[in-house]
């Protein structure tokens, strides 16, 4: 029951965030690298995941569903809501079909 509530909360909060995800792209990148990349790299437990693993729409849907670990765990268990919002912003902004004009240098 507790898990279910957590999922509902995550779904509604993150669903709202999808409409207007006021997350911080740079912070999202940091949390993604610090937390997600520990498992989601080549050869590691979670397999490689990068922003370019999904389209913008797929990432948005992922955060609406807000499930992790093959649907067995609420995303909110992985990191707090505020950080999730930042990670969502980062992943959506840099999804495979996102507009990313290439600049020279950084």
């Amino acid at each position: 029951m507790k898990l279910f509530t957590a999922f509902l909360t995550a779904a509604s909060i993150l669903g709202a965030a999808t409409a207007n995800p006021k997350g911080n792209d740079a912070k999202g990148r940091f949390y993604y690298k610090q937390t997600c990349k520990t498992c989601h790299t080549k050869g590691a437990k979670g397999g490689e995941v990068t922003p370019m693993s999904k389209t913008q729409a797929q990432w948005k849907l992922y955060f609406v569903k807000a499930k992790h670990n093959s649907g067995t765990e609420a995303l909110l268990k992985v990191m707090p809501e505020e950080q999730l919002r930042d990670v969502q912003t980062f992943l959506v902004n840099h999804a495979v079909d996102s507009p990313q004009p290439e600049t020279c240098g950084k």
Partner: peptide
């Protein structure tokens, strides 16, 4: 504000919009 906007921003953007990369 960085130097590409005085130099090569148009070529970078044109190739990115076409091929997704320069």
């Amino acid at each position: 504000v960085r130097h590409p906007t005085l130099c090569l921003a148009s070529v970078n953007l044109a190739y990115s919009m076409t091929f997704g990369t320069v």
